[in-house]
Design a protein around this nucleic acid. Structure first.
Lengths: 113, 113
DNA sequence: TGGGCAATTGCGAATTTTCGCAAATCGTTG
DNA sequence: CAACGATTTGCGAAAATTCGCAATTGCCCA
């Protein structure tokens, strides 16, 4: 008995729903990156990053391999860039709408806020 | 001083990260739907649905309008279908990988699980 | 105007997520 | 083998999410 698709989708999006994890995925889009570099790029403590990496690993969206004493992460497969593009499209559309509305409000309410 | 983009993205994905909200968005893809119909389709109590609708509304991804004593929801704009497609691609790729791995495990470990 | 249906709002409790800190692992190097 | 750097794990506390139930609001109709 399979997990309903809408629930799998929700879990998937929830997995994406953290700034650190988003940044990791974005950094991985150009190819494999060692943890050290993620750590240097992201402003987060090592244990905390590790926990977020574990979330990504458990979800299956990234893979880790050892290289000596370092660990290297990479995207597991599917085109994450596509997803990010779609999200960005919706986001910018929403943000445009909002600033449009704000402009309307300012115009109709006499710049009171 | 704007919210960093990666944080906006994370909030956006977090907003998507609930089964009820996913189902609502999917139901809205074919056009506006009154709350009554959402309620009939989703197996959730009215107050609970209302709270999820409020989350979607606050994020700006849906709009609500009144029609008499009913309320009708619709997608605000951006192409949500695109996003869902991208998510489904990644999801199915991940699920395929997983069952592929499971098959490998079964084969190499002598069907022990 | 009073009653009634539709939808939302306001909590409080239960659950889940997040994060820092200490400790454990793993591989390297002296 | 001891010491060390890199990464992960364990765990408790703080913060955020979720949900049910009661109460409220908005609108229609008799």
């Amino acid at each position: 008995m399979p997990v309903p698709l809408y629930q799998a989708k929700a879990e998937f999006f929830r997995m994406l729903g953290h700034p650190v994890r988003i940044r990791v995925l974005e950094l991985l889009q150009d190819g494999p990156v060692p943890v050290r570099d993620l750590l240097a790029a992201i402003d987060v403590e090592a244990p905390n990053l590790s926990q977020h990496l574990a979330v990504l690993r458990r979800s299956g969206i990234v893979l880790s391999t050892r290289d000596g004493s370092n660990v290297i992460y990479q995207l597991a497969g599917g085109d994450v860039a596509d997803l990010m593009r779609a999200a960005r499209r919706i986001l910018t559309a929403m943000l445009d709408d909002q600033s449009g509305l704000l402009a309307e409000l300012r115009a109709s309410e006499g710049r009171s806020s």
